[in-house]
Design a protein around this nucleic acid. Structure first.
Lengths: 114, 114
DNA sequence: CAGCATCCAGACGGATACTG
DNA sequence: CAGTATCCGTCTGGATGCTG
């Protein structure tokens, strides 16, 4: 009865407006500095980036490497363990793709003004 | 570059505090009436249930069968199309389970007072 | 019985300024 | 450079009451 309830835990990792984008960046680019992430994700700001990064870090999805030097340098990367999330993302991505098509067949193509 | 972005669409379907629980109920019990869902999910209220159900319905995940009679009767079930979500849920569930263990090995067992 | 309307609280996301 | 602190607006979720 409880067998499906665990998947909420997975959900917790992914929810947060920027988690997906951050993960995407780190997956495709490997190690990235704080400022690189900031540049790569135009609409995010420092507070948000820090916050989401901290949560991902707490969950051991991303690794945070601090260089004690001036100027400061901090690098982020997907942790060994975090790699396992990729396949979950892949499944969700595949389904999401199908789903978009399905929605279009129901409601017609979205006119994304944005 | 955009290949992973679609999985946000999948995320959209699942986010919403009660979507997981509702899906779980409908998956395990098949067709259910509005009031049955209400009883099965103790902490939800009518407004919430209606709202989340509507979203799932819009996305063609659940099917809504209205019987025009007095007293009213409305039955909900996972749609043909919605079945496809089960495997996604399964993957997320599996990962979520691993993840819980992983977290425990890092931070020790959670003392869920709730 | 099913569900909509109203009102409300708290969480989440965002802009900006300050710090080591 | 890489954050933290503060403040504020929006959005989501929740309690309650009314309706067909």
């Amino acid at each position: 009865m409880k067998q499906y309830c665990k998947f909420e835990s997975a959900l917790d990792i992914l929810i947060g407006k920027w988690k997906p984008v951050i993960l995407l960046q780190l997956i495709s680019n490997g190690t990235m500095r704080f400022s690189e992430l900031l540049k790569a994700i135009p609409d995010i700001n420092k507070r948000m980036l820090t916050q989401q990064l901290r949560e991902l870090e707490y969950n051991d999805i991303v690794h945070r490497e601090v260089y004690n030097q001036v100027p400061p340098k901090v690098e982020y990367s997907i942790s060994e363990y975090g790699q396992g999330l990729s396949k979950v993302l892949q499944v969700m991505n595949d389904w999401g793709e199908e789903h978009i098509e399905h929605m279009e067949s129901l409601y017609g193509p979205e006119e994304k003004s944005e």
